[in-house]
Design a protein around this nucleic acid. Structure first.
Ligand SMILES: [Mn+2]
Ligand SMILES: [Mn+2]
Ligand SMILES: [Mn+2]
Ligand SMILES: [Mn+2]
Lengths: 219, 219
DNA sequence: AGATATAATTTGGTTAACCTAAATATTTTT
DNA sequence: AAAAATATTTAGGTTAACCAAATTATATCT
């Protein structure tokens, strides 16, 4: 077993998530940004990851995970999301409190722990933010959701995921009474600012800014 | 909140446990031994811990935890033992498998996680090896147990703790069918080698070496 | 007390991760 | 195609943890 340090794992995860949301090149700079690190330091680490055969790198295409690197990155993501699920499901944490702790727990190394945690939780497919949890073999469940601003007017939909995991956004949703699983539909779109009037759980009407509605995923 | 690194936490824990079992001086060397580290490195770290006011140090008395240092050490021990309890109680781990993983988990930082884990487990007083779990305020439950070799012949006793947590010893106990909570009593002591004939759970007789019987704690 | 053994410290390294500032490459604009 | 803007790398440092070998301090023994 090759040893991958905590720092290296964080780089792999950053490259993985960057590649997943912006199809384009994953450059030095983007990684530096994500990890709050100086670009010069990234150069150094990318070289190390390349030497360990965890990424390929060239100036044109930026960093790309190898099969090895992808496997490691997915495992870290799996651990992160399973721990978040545990914290919310069994330890009375709210969805805005779990991310930082999961950032620590995702680096605990034990295959048995991972398997047993998964079993204990009942092999969940999604975490408390609606993000998919890769299974043991690395397969990631897909959800053909779209953002609420693009929803058809009048169509009943279910809130399945949030596209922003910051505590401030999550607390805002709590305040509005919006949670995963809620049934929602758009009644009107305000022309001048794009804000939405939505009906929630068949009993309440609320206004959402376009900003907010771009971060709520429905299905 | 002062930041204490993982390495520093491990030194504090080593000093704490060394002080608890051998009343004598906790010297440079003993710490080095415990942590599999060079004594020269210990000198360096003890200086840092002193600067952070986590220990007092002088050549005569060796290292002594300050109130601050003791609090930190006890918290790490509390985390270690709670996690071990969780692993055995809910994730199908055996008592010989948990130590290494707890060594990692004991460094996760979150007061809420600690409190909630404790609640989830039902505020246990002892871990899977019978070691006491400090409570939230740092108080450590005491158990007036003694080692099996010192037990009175014929007196019914309960196995409450093991004084050796190595996987090899724990597996040996499994093989002999000895577990925490079992009722045991000494029938005979072999004169020539000090080995014991004991009766276990009122149904089986087994021979234990003095060596083994010195690592089984009863009450 | 003086010799010897043991314990601790000093000295002079190393490695992983970071940093800033300066130098190069590469793209984009004019 | 040159100039300007942007991205990356190089060069030269730092800090936390470690190490081995040599030195110094303390304790123990004769
Ligand atoms: Mn998260
Ligand atoms: Mn999540
Ligand atoms: Mn343990
Ligand atoms: Mn234990």
């Amino acid at each position: 077993m090759m040893i991958i340090s905590v720092t290296e794992e964080n780089y792999l995860k950053a490259i993985f998530s960057a590649a997943h949301l912006s199809e384009s090149r994953v450059g030095n700079q983007l990684i530096a940004e994500k990890l709050s690190i100086n670009p010069a330091s990234v150069t150094e680490m990318l070289r190390r990851l390349h030497d360990k055969k965890l990424i390929q790198y060239n100036r044109a295409d930026g960093a790309k995970l190898t099969a090895q690197g992808l496997k490691s990155a997915i495992k870290v993501v799996r651990k992160h999301r399973l721990w978040e699920t545990f914290l919310v499901g069994h330890l009375n944490f709210t969805w805005d409190e779990v991310h930082e702790i999961a950032e620590q727990l995702e680096h605990i190394q034990s295959d048995k722990l991972l398997d047993e945690l998964d079993r204990f939780l009942g092999n969940p497919g999604f975490d408390p933010h609606g993000d998919p949890i890769p299974n043991k073999s690395g397969k990631i469940p897909v959800l053909k959701s779209k953002i609420l601003v693009e929803a058809e007017i009048g169509k009943k939909l279910k809130v399945v995921k949030v596209a922003d995991n910051t505590a401030s956004f999550l607390k805002y949703l709590d305040k509005q009474g919006i949670a995963l699983g809620d049934i929602i539909f758009v009644k009107e779109v305000q022309d001048f600012d794009g804000s939405l009037l939505v009906e929630l759980k068949g009993k309440r009407e609320i206004y959402l800014s376009a900003e907010a509605a771009r971060k709520i995923m429905v299905e």
